[in-house]
Amino acid sequence: MLNPFKRQRPQGRHTPNLWPVWLVAPVTMVVVAALAYGLYQGSDAFLTAENTSKKPVDVQDVIKTTITVLTLMGAVLAGLYAYRKQLLEEGASHRADETQFAERYAKAAEQLGHDQPAVRLAGVYAMARLADDWTEQRQVCVDVLCAYLRMPYQPDDTQLDFKPGEREVRARPTP
């Protein structure tokens, strides 16, 4: 059974853990209405108590004070809404970055296994560049490059396992 008060599990590592809007909005409206009523009654009582003359308190002064406080509360709620929206946007941005890095990783790994030496060399450079850009998975990229270099190869072109250009791909590139 679905529990409406239980927070939803994040959909990704960068998804903020937020309460559902359909639950927060009505509760907020009820709280704001109760606060508005309390503010009106409190303002009326405060202004009446502060009134040293026996002249009755003007209702417009009470309403102005209540509206001013409600406006301030509205500004705070708008700020909270903007902050929540920013958190969601940052989470979406992080997920998009991670997706892009994963696609670049898959492409570079695919290039490392290609038959053409120029494509393999491009894969080495692509994996190295990805390691520079992707700090969270830098070690994985370095491990893949090291594993590629540790793979056996035949430098003799008379052997059956010989791959043309493999020696150049594995050679240390000159700056």
Rank of each mutant, 00 (worst) to 15 (best):
residue 98 E to N: 13
residue 30 V to C: 01
residue 130 L to V: 01
residue 36 A to H: 08
residue 118 A to L: 07
residue 109 A to D: 06
residue 130 L to I: 02
residue 129 R to L: 03
residue 51 N to M: 04
residue 80 L to M: 12
residue 116 Q to W: 14
residue 123 G to K: 05
residue 124 V to L: 11
residue 23 L to F: 12
residue 63 I to N: 14
residue 116 Q to A: 15
residue 41 Q to V: 13
residue 75 A to I: 11
residue 108 A to Q: 00
residue 40 Y to S: 00
residue 135 T to Y: 11
residue 108 A to L: 00
residue 34 A to I: 10
residue 89 E to C: 09
residue 63 I to H: 12
residue 47 L to W: 03
residue 87 L to G: 07
residue 125 Y to E: 06
residue 42 G to L: 06
residue 47 L to H: 05
residue 91 G to R: 05
residue 55 K to L: 14
residue 71 T to I: 03
residue 129 R to N: 11
residue 23 L to R: 03
residue 44 D to Q: 01
residue 106 A to W: 04
residue 99 T to Q: 15
residue 63 I to A: 14
residue 63 I to Q: 12
residue 46 F to N: 14
residue 46 F to W: 15
residue 28 T to Q: 12
residue 85 K to D: 09
residue 66 T to R: 07
residue 41 Q to C: 08
residue 122 A to N: 11
residue 43 S to Y: 11
residue 88 L to Y: 14
residue 53 S to A: 15
residue 66 T to I: 06
residue 108 A to G: 02
residue 34 A to H: 05
residue 76 V to E: 01
residue 101 F to T: 03
residue 43 S to C: 11
residue 137 Q to H: 08
residue 122 A to M: 10
residue 65 T to Y: 08
residue 109 A to T: 03
residue 117 P to I: 05
residue 65 T to E: 08
residue 58 D to N: 13
residue 131 A to K: 09
residue 128 A to E: 05
residue 131 A to I: 02
residue 105 Y to G: 09
residue 67 I to H: 04
residue 44 D to M: 00
residue 120 R to C: 04
residue 26 P to T: 03
residue 108 A to E: 01
residue 117 P to C: 12
residue 101 F to V: 07
residue 32 V to A: 09
residue 91 G to C: 01
residue 97 D to A: 06
residue 129 R to H: 14
residue 62 V to P: 08
residue 53 S to L: 15
residue 47 L to C: 02
residue 48 T to N: 13
residue 57 V to E: 08
residue 79 G to Q: 05
residue 69 V to I: 10
residue 119 V to L: 10
residue 132 D to I: 02
residue 22 W to K: 09
residue 111 Q to K: 08
residue 22 W to T: 06
residue 38 G to C: 03
residue 67 I to A: 04
residue 48 T to V: 14
residue 52 T to S: 13
residue 60 Q to N: 13
residue 52 T to Q: 14
residue 123 G to W: 07
residue 38 G to M: 04
residue 60 Q to F: 11
residue 56 P to N: 00
residue 44 D to I: 02
residue 28 T to S: 12
residue 79 G to C: 02
residue 94 H to P: 06
residue 133 D to G: 11
residue 21 V to E: 09
residue 65 T to S: 13
residue 108 A to I: 02
residue 49 A to N: 08
residue 29 M to L: 13
residue 35 L to S: 11
residue 101 F to M: 15
residue 37 Y to T: 14
residue 62 V to S: 00
residue 106 A to V: 08
residue 137 Q to F: 07
residue 89 E to W: 07
residue 89 E to N: 15
residue 68 T to Q: 12
residue 33 A to W: 13
residue 68 T to V: 11
residue 139 Q to R: 03
residue 68 T to M: 14
residue 139 Q to F: 02
residue 124 V to Q: 09
residue 26 P to M: 00
residue 76 V to L: 02
residue 73 M to F: 00
residue 77 L to E: 04
residue 36 A to I: 11
residue 21 V to L: 12
residue 105 Y to F: 15
residue 47 L to R: 01
residue 84 R to A: 07
